[in-house]
């Protein structure tokens, strides 16, 4: 069984590309997440990866994010903050305090 994961690609009114994920990202679906990331990242401008809807992110998910750190910004909920901190991604990450 694969955990629920919804990936939505959009562009904000200000033109910033957004990839929003919701659900859980683990070893079983990290590839899906990685492909979505690869598709959404472009040289035109930074991609905002919105992980506020993600309840679980493991090292496989982090591994999908890492190749793109130069071109992405990340938004996470409180629950994911420790993982992001340990992965050293704090400088490109905003913790959404909702």
């Amino acid at each position: 069984m694969t955990p629920p994961l919804t990936l939505t690609s959009s562009r904000r009114p200000d033109g910033v590309a957004v990839l929003a994920a919701a659900g859980e990202i683990d070893l079983s679906n990290a590839r899906t997440f990685a492909s979505a990331l690869a598709g959404a990242v472009s040289d035109d401008g930074p991609l905002l990866v919105d992980l506020t809807g993600v309840e679980y992110l493991d090292s496989a998910g982090l591994a999908a994010l890492l190749p793109h750190v130069a071109r992405i910004r990340i938004v996470v909920g409180e629950l994911l903050a420790p993982v992001i901190t340990i992965a050293g991604l704090t400088d490109i990450t905003t913790v959404d305090g909702r």
């Binding site: 069984m1 694969t2 955990p3 859980e24 683990d26 070893l27 079983s28 679980y56």
Partner: peptide, 8 residues
Amino acid sequence: SGQLAVTR
């Protein structure tokens, strides 16, 4: 890996 979510 598919068992991970259930276990969780």
